[in-house]
Simulated scan of single mutants.
Amino acid sequence: MSETHAVVLFGHGARDPEWARPMRRTRDHLRAQAPRLRVELAFLEFMAPTLDEAIAALARDGIRRITVVPMFIAQGGHLKSDVPRLVAAARALHPDCEITLALAVGEADGVIAAMADYALGCSVASRD
């Protein structure tokens, strides 16, 4: 990855700022794994920055490849309608940027396997 590429971890947002703790931990972990990759957070509602604000800041900083990773468990209503509209609007505002929308993180095979492993570990621990 180069310094002209960024990942935006995009979540729903919540009124409680502690809700974003797992997203901040994921961002920090990703930054540690790929120090040259720009990693930012963005939120649909209740928290800042919004997706359009995060993408605008990245574009101002010269980032030309942006991957939006929805930090959602599944492709629900927001991801089927709201998020594609937001990404399309960002593409129109920043035609010099390649903006890619990934599947919801919870749809990835590795994440599903990790959730199953976690649930299994919980069930085993509860028998002890």
Rank of each mutant, 00 (worst) to 15 (best):
Thr4Asp: 02
Thr4Val: 05
His5Arg: 15
Ala6Trp: 07
Leu9Glu: 03
Leu9Ile: 08
Phe10Leu: 13
Phe10His: 09
Gly11Glu: 08
Gly11Asn: 07
His12Thr: 05
His12Asp: 08
Ala14Cys: 05
Arg15Val: 11
Pro17Arg: 15
Glu18Lys: 12
Glu18Cys: 09
Glu18Met: 13
Trp19Asp: 14
Trp19His: 11
Ala20His: 01
Asp28Phe: 15
Leu30Ala: 07
Arg31Phe: 09
Ala32Cys: 04
Gln33Ala: 09
Gln33Gly: 04
Arg38Trp: 10
Arg38Gly: 00
Val39Ala: 01
Val39Asn: 00
Val39Ile: 07
Glu40Phe: 14
Leu41Gln: 03
Ala42Lys: 02
Ala42Ile: 08
Leu44Tyr: 09
Leu44Ile: 02
Glu45Asn: 12
Phe46Leu: 02
Thr50Ser: 13
Asp52Ala: 09
Ala54Gln: 03
Ala56Lys: 09
Leu58Pro: 05
Leu58Tyr: 06
Ala59Phe: 01
Arg60Asp: 09
Asp61Lys: 05
Ile63Ser: 11
Ile63Arg: 13
Arg64Ser: 00
Arg64Val: 00
Arg65Cys: 00
Val68Asp: 13
Ala74Glu: 01
Lys80Trp: 02
Ser81Ala: 15
Val83Asn: 09
Arg85Trp: 04
Leu86Lys: 02
Leu86Val: 11
Leu86Ile: 09
Val87Ala: 07
Ala89Phe: 07
Ala89Arg: 02
Ala92Glu: 14
Pro95Ser: 14
